[in-house]
Nucleic acid binder design. Structure first.
Lengths: 108, 108
DNA sequence: CGTGTAAGGAATTCTGACACG
DNA sequence: CGTGTAAGGAATTCTGACACG
C-alpha cells in the first residue's frame, strides 16, 4: 500500500455527501458518532470526514435501526465482530511466525 | 459492480479536500477543469465532486505543469491515451464476438 | 497562459440546547 | 432513546472579474 490505506478506508467524504449517499440525516450521522458506532476523522478546521467503509457501516446501522435494534446493541455486535477479526489476525501472525522460524527471517 | 462504479471512480470528494490531497489551489483545480483536463460531477446545489481517480489525474497534471508542459499539451496527451484505451477495448470486444460465434450466445 | 486575489452571496458545517416521547 | 429543529457563527464553495505577465 502506497499510503497506509486503500480507497475504501481513506477519510475524505464530508457529512453532506455521506447524508446523500446513505439517506440518513446529518443529525443521525452525528448521533451515531456520539454513540461510538462510527469514527470520522476531522479536517484541520474541524469538519468530519468519512470513508467509503464508514458509509457502508452507516448503511448497516440504518438497517439495524429499522429493525428496531438500539444503538447500544449495535455497538455490542460491532465489538464482537471486532474481536473475531482480531482472533483471525492473531492466528495469521502465529502462522507467519512459524513459517519465519523454519524458513527464514524476512521482516514484514 | 454493485453501483456502476468502484470506490476509485465514485465522485464524492469536495474541492477543499482535493486541494489538501493534491497540494493544488482551488483556483488551479477549477482552471484545469476549464481547460478540460478534469471532469468533476456536481452536487444538487452545484458543488464540484471528484473521485480518487480525479485526484490521481490532478497529481499527474501537477507534475507535467512543473516540467513546464502547457495545459493544451497535457490535453493532447490525454486524448492520445484515451484512444489507445478505446483501441484495446475494441479488440477485446472483437475477440468476445469470435468466441460467442463459435461457442454459444451468452449475452454479456 | 496560468494563477492570485478581493467581492458578494448562497450553502455547509459545527456545537449546545430545547422538544417530544 | 433517537431524532427534529431553530440559533449563531465560522468556514466552504461558487461565479465573474481584474491583475500580472
Amino acid at each position: 500500500m502506497e499510503h497506509g490505506t486503500s480507497y475504501k478506508e481513506r477519510k475524505v467524504i464530508t457529512i453532506g455527501v455521506v447524508s446523500e449517499l446513505t439517506g440518513l440525516s446529518e443529525r443521525q450521522i452525528r448521533y451515531y458518532e456520539e454513540r461510538k458506532l462510527i469514527f470520522p476523522e476531522r479536517s484541520p478546521r474541524g469538519n468530519r470526514k468519512y470513508s467509503f467503509a464508514d458509509v457502508e457501516q452507516l448503511v448497516d446501522i440504518a438497517n439495524k435501526r429499522e429493525e428496531g435494534v438500539q444503538t447500544f446493541e449495535i455497538r455490542q455486535e460491532m465489538l464482537k465482530e471486532k474481536k473475531k477479526e482480531e482472533a483471525k489476525n492473531i492466528k495469521k501472525e502465529m502462522l507467519r511466525g512459524q513459517i519465519n522460524a523454519r524458513f527464514g527471517v524476512q521482516k514484514n
